Amino acid sequence: SAEDNLGPLPENWEMAYTENGEVYFIDHNTKTTSWLDPRCLNKQQK
């Protein structure tokens, strides 16, 4: 699965689903949400 390739979410991040079944990500560090997987963003920065 995609999660196996990317590994676990960063600390204090949570994956959630909208009512429509779309995946989004919650950053409890900054109390924000994102459509972008933080694991993908980390890979792009390196």
Rank of each mutant, 00 (worst) to 15 (best):
W35G: 03
C40Q: 14
E14K: 07
W13E: 00
C40A: 12
Q45L: 14
L36S: 08
D4E: 13
T33H: 03
H28Y: 05
T30L: 09
N29F: 07
E14L: 04
G7F: 06
Q45I: 11
N42W: 14
D27Y: 01
N29Q: 08
L36Y: 12
Y24E: 01
E11I: 11
S1K: 15
K46N: 11
G7H: 08
M15W: 06
Y24C: 03
L9I: 09
K43E: 14
C40D: 14
E3A: 10
T30H: 10
T32M: 09
G7I: 08
D37E: 03
W13A: 04
P10V: 01
P38F: 00
K46Q: 04
S1N: 04
K31I: 03
S1W: 06
E22Q: 11
T33R: 04
A2P: 10
Y17L: 13
E14C: 07
E22L: 05
L41H: 10
T32S: 11
N29P: 01
F25T: 02
Y17Q: 12
Q44C: 09
M15V: 12
Y17H: 13
D37I: 00
W35Q: 02
N20S: 15
N20I: 11
T18D: 06
T18W: 06
M15A: 10
T32Y: 03
N5T: 11
K31C: 05
H28E: 04
W13F: 11
M15H: 05
P8H: 07
A16F: 03
G21A: 10
W35H: 04
K46R: 10
P8W: 04
E3G: 10
P38Q: 00
T30D: 06
S34A: 04
E22H: 10
E11W: 11
N5W: 06
E22T: 06
A16L: 06
E3H: 12
H28R: 09
V23N: 13
A2V: 10
M15K: 14
N5H: 09
D4Q: 11
D37L: 02
D37S: 03
H28C: 04
P38H: 00
H28A: 06
L9E: 02
F25S: 01
R39L: 01
N29A: 13
E11K: 12
A2C: 12
A16I: 05
W35L: 05
Y17P: 05
H28L: 05
E3F: 11
F25I: 00
M15Y: 05
E3M: 04
D27K: 00
L36T: 10
L6R: 12
Q45Y: 12
P10N: 02
K43Q: 12
N42R: 13
A16S: 11
P8N: 09
T30C: 08
Q45W: 07
N5R: 12
P38K: 01
G7A: 09
T33Q: 02
